[in-house]
């Protein structure tokens, strides 16, 4: 695909290819952009990093009026809401991926399902938030009270139950990462050589014996990659979470109580921040970027490995 080496050295060739230079510059800009983002946020966070150090991660005080900042509750909220979202979305996402790659129902219906998943992916985050305020918040409030009443003794389920809670945010996050899980899992299911399936059928396996014992184990690395990437996406998701999680700065361990995430913290406080608070928020952004970047690097590497194992792939 590149310019072949046997091009005759005519007058065009001898002239410098300025267009190539422009293209090269653009490519290099993309590489430097990631570095620039990290560097810029790190520089702005530096005063807070110097001031608070590691204590920033272990303190649960966020009091702008006294210039005391710690993000332990937000770290907890980010981790738990993303994990819970992943647990909820994984079975559904896998079911959708299987639905799209198997022939349970005729093609038009599968096409419809595909369109719907694409629409779920294209819906703006803020609209999910608005929808959540009207549907999920009352639902969680209502059923939360029942659960707390009967199973309040179980850890993480104690009351009182609020509508704007960790669980509400997790539910909407699950909906938002579902398309990611479904799309990547489907791609790795479709990439399985047809001979494996035929072999399993020839040995007398039923459809689901083939799926659970042949197809899913073969696609497992791709599904793992999908989960990791979805987890990264859930950690960075902002608006819907900020509208539903209740934005409490206190560390609470129940999924029915208001909580906060790193991204929701940034969304809520940045526009009115001043002085050291800006630096503290940049520190929080720096932690968020490290978390999501780390997760994404692992996810991409796993995905790359599975694609190599499957011999190319998309």
């Amino acid at each position: 695909m590149s310019a072949p080496a046997f091009i005759p050295k005519n007058r065009y060739r001898r002239r410098r290819d300025y267009f190539r230079c422009f293209c090269w510059i653009a490519a290099v800009i993309i590489i430097f952009l990631l570095g620039l983002i990290i560097d810029e946020i790190f520089t702005k966070a530096l005063p807070a990093i110097r001031h608070f150090g590691w204590h920033f991660l272990t303190s649960s005080e966020w009091r702008p009026n006294r210039d005391l900042y710690g993000v332990l509750p937000m770290l907890f909220g980010t981790a738990v809401s993303s994990l819970l979202a992943l647990l909820l979305a994984l079975p559904l996402g896998l079911a959708v991926a299987l639905f799209l790659s198997e022939n349970f129902l005729p093609r038009p219906l599968r096409q419809l399902m595909r369109m719907i998943v694409e629409m779920l992916a294209a819906t703006p985050s803020v609209v999910y938030g608005l929808w959540g305020i009207f549907t999920l918040v009352p639902l969680v409030q209502h059923y939360g009270e029942i659960v707390v009443h009967h199973c309040g003794w179980i850890p993480f389920l104690h009351g009182p139950a609020y509508g704007n809670s960790l669980l509400t945010a997790s539910l909407v996050l699950a909906l938002m990462v579902l398309p990611t899980i479904a799309a990547i899992s489907r791609a790795s299911l479709v990439a399985i050589p047809e001979t494996l399936r035929e072999g399993a059928y020839a040995l007398g396996a039923t459809r689901w014996e083939t799926i659970t014992r042949v197809l899913l184990p073969y696609a497992a690395p791709g599904i793992v990659a999908a989960s990791i990437l979805a987890f990264g996406r859930a950690m960075g998701e902002t608006m819907a979470v900020a509208m539903l999680i209740g934005n409490s700065q206190r560390l609470t361990l129940s999924i029915f109580s208001p909580s906060n995430t790193l991204s929701a913290l940034l969304a809520n406080q940045f526009s009115e921040a001043e002085g050291l608070q800006i630096n503290a928020l940049m520190y929080a952004a720096f932690i968020l970027i490290l978390l999501t970047l780390g997760t994404n690097i692992i996810g991409e590497l796993v995905l790359r490995r599975t694609q190599r194992a499957l011999g190319g792939g998309s």
Binding site: L34, L229, G232, G236, T238, F270, L281, M282, T292
Partner: peptide, 15 residues
Amino acid sequence: IAKLLTGIPSIICGA
């Protein structure tokens, strides 16, 4: 890097 950039949270772009 481009793949990683697609995974950068949108709020980080804002920051």
